[in-house]
Design a protein around this nucleic acid. Structure first.
Length: 504
RNA sequence: GGGCUUGUAGCUUAGUUCGGUAGAGCGACGGACUCUUAAUCCGUAGGUCAAGGGUUCAAAUCCCUUCAGGCCCGCCA
């Protein structure tokens, strides 16, 4: 008995048995093939008469149209599709019947034949011989509608990828986007490094971590929430341009723009400041959009977003003024609290200074309305423990965040490199943690020591890759751009004794 | 955590308003067919209607609980 969770089809199992008994090898070891795209290119000008040259390719059979003495089938590989034409009179009785008896929709096969164009103009491979490379024991979804059920598409992404071309396209785009990032940074003399994912302390962002335990070291370890503190150690070490395409892990809620593990590229450039990083970010993202989309535009959520630089740039205070009409610069703290309360912004009661009100107003009323690319600058010092103090404005830092379609897409600073200031900021964070703030940062004294050896002035930025892919591919859910998004367990056990079903 | 919403055959779904033995297309299986392309034509099989409980003479349909999904809000600075 097979496990009921396995999709094996009884009829297909029986046919596999039949093939075994007929001595047909079902899982050969290798196969030399030409990509379907290459065949299409080479024979683009072919007419109705079959080519003299024979070609060999392989892929998955996606459709079979059986006409009795001839069979048409569609073969798909990762470069495209081509039609197969199988005739009894050219294969011979025995080989032909082996095809029509054993080859089914979903099977992986290799074929050799001559290329021609059918009467209706379809480029087709006139098959002279075929090889079964891997029979499918599970049936594919319906040929026309494909797999639409969102939950099944995520849980069985391999089936989604087989039958839904849009889905394949999204992940091709994702792969190209990441390689564009790497190529561009590499060309500018950045080096990519791999820093620890398992960390004894978690830092570089405000977030709750995943916790694990190393039994040999007998200590708690954390999955990183950001690579920041390690990449900056590399700058201390003398690497002046570093980056990492990093998977980060945050133990927080899941929604259409948050997955517990997500991808980011973090970039650090010595002797640069926040404004250099803004230019780098504008250049990198607009180049990516132009390369992948052909122009600077992305259709997203009913809006047309233009990535042509330079992007709108506002201080957080200016943004609040522009979007709410509240001019914080001319107000006292009690007035601010009044306004916040009137506008229904939560959390204002506990605010101890005008900067906290500013953040509340910004997050509550402005963030979600920043549709076109907008750079927000001048963040309160309390919210930015790793950013340098603003060179002019007291109480604020040299930090920017990029918002697009109401989502935070990038976050960068003039990096704090004064070890004594860093120590003081960590101590402030530690106090907040003691006060119950689960997301306040944990002091990393070794990092402070690293700064003690001297870190050059440095600009840094982190760009959210998943969200960038969402924008470029027009997808409003992060699960559509993550191959295997986090899902709840689906195995439910229903006990016979009538107790509640439970998840195992 | 709150609100709304979805779950019917392998897949895509009708039926739920207003309770009366579950209907289709594709796929599968058997048959016909030598240029089709969601091939076409004839026939057959396949569903404890997400799970559990309740109301009722009778439940896919009404009620409750649970599980999983989706959307929105809160949370995530």
């Amino acid at each position: 008995m097979t496990d009921p969770a396995v999709c094996f089809d009884e009829v297909r199992l029986a046919r596999r048995q039949e093939m075994c008994e007929a001595g047909i090898p079902l899982y050969p070891y290798r196969f030399d093939k030409e990509r379907i795209e290459s065949i299409r290119d080479r024979f683009a000008g072919i007419g109705h008469d079959p080519s003299e040259e024979t070609v060999t390719t392989a892929g998955r059979v996606l459709l079979v149209r059986d006409h009795g003495k001839t069979v048409f089938a569609d073969l798909q590989d990762d470069s495209g599709r081509v039609q197969l034409y199988i005739r009894r009179d050219s294969l011979g009785e025995e080989v032909f019947s082996r095809f029509s008896r054993f080859v089914e929709r979903g099977d992986i096969i290799g074929v050799t034949g001559r290329v021609f164009r059918t009467r209706l103009g379809e480029l087709t491979l006139w098959v002279d011989s075929f090889t079964i490379l891997a029979p499918a024991l599970c049936a594919l979804p319906e040929k026309f509608h494909g797999l639409r059920d969102i939950e099944k598409r995520y849980r069985q992404r391999y089936v989604d990828l087989i039958v839904n071309e849009e889905s394949r396209k999204i992940f091709q785009t994702r792969s190209r986007l990441i390689s564009l990032i790497r190529r561009t940074l590499d060309e500018q003399d950045f080096l990519e490094f791999e820093t620890p994912i398992l960390q004894p302390l978690y830092g570089g962002a405000n977030a709750r971590p995943f916790t694990t335990h190393h039994h040999f070291l007998e200590r708690t370890l954390y999955l990183r929430i950001a690579p920041e503190l390690y990449l900056k150690r590399l700058v201390v070490g003398g690497f002046e341009r570093v980056y990492e395409v990093a998977r980060n892990f945050r133990n927080e809620d899941i929604d259409t723009s948050h997955n517990p593990e997500f991808s980011m590229v973090e970039i650090y450039q010595a002797y640069a400041d926040m404004y250099d990083m803004i230019r780098l970010t504008e250049g990198l993202i607009s180049m990516i959009v132009r390369t992948l989309k052909g122009d600077d535009l992305c259709a997203f959520g009913g809006e047309m977003i233009s990535f042509t630089p330079p992007w709108r740039q506002l201080t957080m205070t200016e943004a609040v003024l522009q979007f709410t009409g509240i001019d914080l610069a001319s107000m006292t703290l009690p007035d601010m609290k009044d306004q916040a309360a009137k506008l229904g912004v939560e959390g204002w009661e506990a605010a101890v200074n005008e900067r906290e009100i500013l953040v509340l107003l910004f997050e509550g009323l402005v963030e979600g309305r920043l549709i076109q690319p907008t750079l927000i600058t001048e963040f309160p010092i309390e919210n930015s423990p790793l950013a340098k103090r603003h060179r002019v404005r007291e109480g604020f830092t040299e930090r920017f965040e990029l918002f697009v379609a109401g989502m935070e897409l990038a976050n960068g600073f003039s990096e704090l490199n004064d070890p004594l200031d860093q120590l003081a900021r960590f101590e402030d964070q530690e106090q907040r943690r003691q006060g119950g703030d689960l997301e306040a940062q944990v002091p990393d004294y070794d990092f402070v020591s690293a700064l003690g050896y001297g870190m050059p002035p440095t600009g840094g930025v982190g760009i959210g890759i998943d969200r960038l892919v969402m924008l470029v591919s027009g997808q409003s859910s992060i699960k559509e751009v993550i191959l295997f998004p986090q899902m709840k367990a689906e195995q439910i056990v229903c006990p016979d004794d009538g107790s509640q079903p439970r998840v195992e």
